[in-house]
Computed example of a mutant assay.
Amino acid sequence: MTEYGSPDPEWAPIAATLPAQFDTSAEATVVQEQWITVTQPLLARNSKPLLPDDSKYRVEDHKVSVEGGEITVRVVIPNSGDAGETYPLVVWMHGGGWVLGDVNQDDFFLRLLSVELQATVVNVDYRLAPQFPFPTGLNDSYTAVKWAATNADKLSASIAKGFIVGGQSAGGNLTAVIAHRAHVDPFFQDKPLTGQHLSIPVTLHYEAYPEKYMCLLRSWEENKDAKILDTDSMRWFYKQYQGPADGPETSPALYPSHAGLPPAHIQVCGLDPLRDEGLLYERLLREAGTPTRLDIYPGVPHAFQMAAPRIALASKFLNDAFSGFRWLLAGGK
Score class of each variant (00 low, 15 high):
288 A>T: 10
207 E>N: 09
127 R>H: 02
120 T>R: 04
220 W>Q: 04
248 P>T: 07
136 T>E: 04
331 G>E: 12
258 H>S: 12
237 F>D: 02
113 L>W: 00
238 Y>K: 01
13 P>N: 01
66 V>A: 09
235 R>G: 07
49 P>Y: 11
285 L>M: 06
67 E>C: 09
19 P>L: 00
36 I>C: 00
236 W>P: 06
150 T>M: 08
274 L>A: 08
139 N>A: 14
92 W>A: 03
133 P>W: 01
258 H>G: 12
73 V>M: 10
81 G>D: 00
37 T>G: 08
281 Y>M: 09
165 V>N: 06
202 V>D: 14
287 E>G: 12
187 F>S: 11
160 A>I: 11
112 L>M: 11
138 L>S: 01
146 K>C: 13
2 T>D: 13
165 V>E: 01
72 T>R: 13
57 Y>H: 05
172 G>A: 04
166 G>F: 06
160 A>H: 04
78 P>T: 09
241 Y>E: 02
103 V>Q: 05
140 D>A: 10
46 N>G: 02
7 P>G: 04
47 S>H: 07
24 T>M: 03
230 D>Y: 02
257 S>T: 13
22 F>R: 07
307 A>E: 00
296 I>H: 04
5 G>F: 15
309 P>C: 15
38 V>E: 14
72 T>F: 15
6 S>E: 13
61 D>P: 02
195 G>W: 08
333 K>C: 03
323 S>A: 15
185 D>C: 05
292 T>M: 11
271 L>R: 02
94 H>M: 05
320 D>C: 05
176 A>K: 00
137 G>E: 04
200 I>M: 12
27 E>L: 14
285 L>F: 02
161 K>E: 05
304 F>I: 11
197 H>L: 15
111 R>D: 01
195 G>L: 10
291 P>S: 05
326 R>L: 14
178 I>R: 01
93 M>P: 00
258 H>F: 14
293 R>Y: 02
134 F>L: 12
16 A>C: 00
70 E>I: 01
72 T>S: 12
221 E>I: 13
22 F>I: 14
22 F>N: 10
263 P>L: 14
74 R>M: 13
214 M>P: 00
320 D>F: 09
283 R>H: 10
254 L>F: 10
165 V>T: 09
198 L>E: 02
250 T>S: 08
152 A>F: 12
305 Q>K: 04
48 K>N: 04
190 D>F: 15
232 D>P: 00
240 Q>H: 08
260 G>T: 13
188 F>I: 14
93 M>C: 05
50 L>A: 09
58 R>N: 06
3 E>K: 15
321 A>D: 10
232 D>V: 09
166 G>A: 13
142 Y>G: 09
156 S>G: 02
14 I>W: 03
156 S>K: 08
40 Q>I: 13
35 W>E: 02
90 V>I: 13
215 C>P: 02
277 E>R: 02
27 E>W: 10
3 E>F: 15
266 I>Y: 03
68 G>S: 08
300 V>Y: 03
262 P>A: 15
268 V>P: 01
312 A>Y: 06
161 K>Q: 07
48 K>I: 09
81 G>Y: 00
201 P>G: 10
134 F>Y: 15
297 Y>G: 07
184 V>L: 11
108 F>M: 12
204 L>V: 07
42 L>V: 00
18 L>I: 01
254 L>S: 04
84 G>I: 04
295 D>S: 14
133 P>Y: 01
301 P>T: 07
88 P>V: 09
